[in-house]
Every structure is written in C-alpha cells, then in structure tokens.
Amino acid sequence: MAHLARPKRAARGLLIESVKAIANQSELPSIPIDLEPYWVDCALFSGLGPLIAHKLLDVGTAVPAELADSIRPAAAMHLLHLAVLRIIRNALDAAGVRWLVFKGPAVAEQFYEAPSARTYSDLDILIHPADFERGLTALLQGPARLIDQNWFLISEREQGEITLAIGATVIDLHWHFFSSALTRSTFQLDICRTFDHACTTTLGGVEMTVLDTADTVIFLATHAVLSGGHRLKWMFDFHCAAASLNVPNDVIRKRIREYNVELLVSVMASRTAAFLGTDAPVEHGHHPWLALSRLASRAAPPESEFLNAYTARALFSATRTSTRNSVVQFVRNAVRLARTGSNRRSHVVDRSILHLPGGTEADRRRWLDMVASHG
C-alpha cells in the first residue's frame, strides 16, 4: 500500500544503519517510536532479528519483544543442525570421505559473537568429487533420505549438488560451490583446491573440517553476488569473514585471481563498503561493470524486497569474469525477466522439479561419473 511505503523505506534505512553500527562497533541509531514496528518487521524479514537483539542486549537497551523472541528459535535451530552435523560426520568419516561443512553453522560459530545471532535453515556439505559417490552412499545407507530424485534432470543439467534430509533437516550435498554447469564452465574454479586449503575448527564442541578464512571470504562473495546481492545479511557475513582474515592480503588476492572470480568479489566488496562502511583486502580494479554495479547499488539498496521495490538481482547475478561477459549475461537475464517475470539469479533450476522421481539408473550412473571426473 502506498501509505506504508514511506515508513517502510525509512525503517529499511534504519536497519542498514543498525547493521552498519554493529559492523563498526559503534552506537546503534535511535529508532523513532512510530517507526519501531516497521524497523522490527524489516529486521525479522531480513533474517537479522537475532543479530540486532543480541546487540541491544549487549548494550543494555530494551529489546522489542519480537526481536527478543527471535533469538530462541535461532538458537534451537543451530543446536539441531549441530546434532545432525555430528551424525553426518560419523557417517562420512567412517566411509573415509574427504568433506567439509560451509556456510550455516561454520559461519555462525566462527564469525559471529553468538551463533544464535545468525539465522540459517539448512546444512551445506561439500564432498571431494572423487569421494562423492562413496559419501552419498554412506549417507543414504545410514541416516539420510533422498529428496532430489529426478536423475534425468540431475544428470542432464549436471547439477553441482543434490538435496538430502535427516529428520526435518535439509542437507545440500555439494561436490562444487556452483550448482549450474554453465557457471562452472564460466569461472573454471577448481573445487579440489579448496580441500588443499581446508582447516579444522570446533563447531559445537566437535572438531570439523571447514573452509579456511580466505576461501570463506571468496565463497561468501561469489554466492551472494550470483544470488543477486540483495540481502544485507550476506554483506554482514562477508564483512565478518573478511575482518577475521589471518593471511596476508597478497595471499587472498592471488587466490581470487586463481579462482577467476576477481569481478565477483570486487562487486561484493564494493557493495559491502557502500552500505556497511567496511573494507576488504580486495583490489577493485577499474572495470566498467564495477562502476555500473555501484550505480545500481544506489538505486537498489539491500532489503529492497521488503518494499517490493527494485532489487537489481538480474544485474548483480549477471556478474561474470569481465565487463563484456557480464553485459551479455545481463541481457540474457533481462530477457528472461521480461518473458517470465522471474527476478531470480540466472540458470537456477526449480528445485521442486528435482524432487519428483524420474530417469533411470543409467542417468544416475552418468551423473556420478561426471562428478567423479572432476576429482
């Protein structure tokens, strides 16, 4: 409704300022009483309710009931996922599989002051391509059940992940960061290198293998931009990981170049700097596409979905290895948007289609052989 647009826009701006203050360890902005309900709604909509609530508790400020109530389910979900992660660990370690956990609990435990300050809904597990079939078999013969069952589409699209579940917990089982075969061919990121860099840490009191901080920074940036770059939580994740880097700047810059994701990471670093006022050790360069993304950022601040406004997802998700390639992809995205009305990232399969049984054992075999060929 038109009469709600102004207070919701103001509340969105206050949320950005609030998260910026947390990122810079400065004082939170004062929230006018008439805007507080909209500010709370925007915080919850963005998944940042628990983060804001924790900060208010830390400084001894009264916490709106809805924000305070958001901490408990976030904490409960984290504990549930840690329990499932232990089950996964036992199954995969017993099978002698090389694997690691990323996103979700790894980010919450390593980079947030309290894990319950970060919301997430599923578990992302990366298995070395050479070990993927063995890992998948170990999980399906043990605690997990298969959600994605359309082997014809999985094989035809050369999916970079498959969905399982343990109880009510959804598991995205990856053999690559990029689910789309076209995206993988564009960036040619050697996923096996991430296992060379992997390290161990303690998650919920149990030792787990995770991405090292440099690869975490890179993955958070690539995932955010290819997903549309429209969420403030992604920017805060990126800031937290970048602030925790324990390697020289030239090391992460070299790795970004090796992974062929310079423009992706630069766009994320630029967008994060614009809204959170923090810098990452990334060489932005002088790409015209980067300049265009900065202009788009002004027209499409994060959480524009809260206002049903322009999010620029079609533009940010078009970022590729060069300005030329990005422009070509943006045109494709724009045509797709005009034809279908979908403003999602490019080349995303409707995952619900994969849940329906389809294909044959030959399709399944073809996909698993393709995965193994990358190991």
Rank of each mutant, 00 (worst) to 15 (best):
R6V: 15
R9I: 09
G13L: 12
L14D: 15
S18I: 00
A23T: 05
A23W: 02
S26Q: 04
L28W: 06
I31Q: 10
V40W: 08
D41W: 03
G49F: 03
A53N: 01
L57Y: 10
D58F: 07
D58W: 09
V59A: 10
G60C: 09
A62R: 08
L67H: 08
A75T: 02
A76N: 08
A76Y: 06
V84L: 01
I87C: 02
N90I: 02
G96Y: 02
Q110T: 06
D124T: 01
I127Q: 03
H128E: 14
A130W: 02
E133I: 03
R134L: 13
N150P: 03
W151Q: 03
I154Y: 07
S155R: 07
E158D: 12
Q159E: 06
L164A: 00
L164Y: 00
G167W: 11
W175G: 02
S180M: 03
R184K: 08
S185N: 11
Q188W: 09
L189G: 01
T194G: 04
D196C: 08
G205W: 14
L211S: 04
L211G: 05
I218S: 03
A221S: 12
V225R: 07
H230W: 02
R231H: 04
A241L: 15
A242R: 01
A243I: 04
A243F: 04
N246V: 08
A273S: 09
F275D: 08
T278K: 06
H287W: 15
H287D: 14
R298C: 14
A300C: 07
S304T: 10
F306C: 06
A309Y: 12
A309F: 06
A312T: 02
V331E: 07
R336H: 15
L337M: 13
L337I: 03
R339T: 07
R339W: 13
G341P: 06
R345K: 10
R345I: 01
S352H: 08
I353V: 15
P357M: 10
R364M: 13
V371M: 05
H374Q: 14
G375E: 08
